[in-house]
Amino acid sequence: MKGNILIVEDEDAIGNVLSSILIANEYIPVIAKNGEQALIMLRSFQPDVVLLDLGLPDMDGLRILKKVKETHGCPVLIVSARDNERDKVEALDMGADDYITKPFGNSELLARIRVAMRNHSEGEVRTGESKKIYCCGKLRIDLEKHIVTLNNERIHLTKNELRIIELLSQNPGKVLTYDYLIKHIWGTDMLENNRILRVNMANIRRKLEENPAEPKYIITEIGVGYRLADESFL
C-alpha cells in the first residue's frame, strides 16, 4: 500500500469517485464529510496526504488546513470547485502543498499526490543533509554547486535567476506563489513589484526553454505562481 489518504469532501459523488480512483491505485482512502469529522479522523487515521475541499458545510476549509499544518504536518492538496485565483493563492500561502481544480483528470490527481508525498518525505530527509540534484528531462540543476545544465551544456544565469530556479527546484512539481517567490528572492519590501519576478521568469524561460510559448520545465499557473515540472508530470 502506498499510503493513507484522508478525503475531506461533502459531495458523495465526488467522494466516491475519489476513493475508487485511490483504491484502484493502491492507496487507502477515508472520507470525512464535514470539518468536524475531518478533525477527528486526522488524529485517528493518521493520513499521509489530505485531499481538502475548501467549501465545507460546517466550517471554512482553510481552518482545517491550518489545523493540519499546526498539528499533523502532512501534505495537504486543495481540491476545490472555487475557480478563484485569490482563494488558491491564499490556501497556498497558508501552507497548502498544491491545489487542483474540479473537474480534474485521474492521472493529474495521482501525479499531484505522488509529488506531494515525495516532496514531504524528502523534506524530512533534507533537514539532515542538504545535498540535492534536480533532474527533469534534459534539465539538471545542481543545488550544491549552483550549476544549471541543459543537454549537458552549462546555462549561464544571473544571480537572481539562479536563486529563483533553485527555489523552484527545491520543490519540484509544487506551485510557488508570486508572493512566496518575491519574498524569498527580493524580500518583503518588493512584494508590490510583481513585474520584476515576471521579467526574470521570462528571461529564464528564454534560456531554458526551446519554445517559450510551450514551456516544458517552467510551468505558469496564471494568476497564482510558477511550478517547475516534475519528472512524473512529463
Binding site: 483528470g105 510583481n194 513585474r195 515576471r198 521579467v199 521568469m201 521570462a202 524561460r205 519554445n211 517559450p212 510559448a213 510551450e214 514551456p215 510551468i219 505558469t220 499557473e221 496564471i222 494568476g223
Partner: peptide, 30 residues
C-alpha cells in the same frame, strides 16, 4: 487588471487546449 507577460497567457492557453486535443499543433511567432 494586472500586468502580465503575454507569453505566459499564451503558453497556458496552449497547454489547456492540448489537454483536450492531443494532436493539436500550434506554431507561435512572437
Amino acid at each position: 487588471k494586472t500586468m502580465e507577460p503575454v507569453e505566459e497567457v499564451i503558453a497556458d492557453s496552449i497547454a489547456r487546449c492540448k489537454k483536450y486535443f492531443s494532436d493539436l499543433k500550434v506554431e507561435v511567432h512572437m
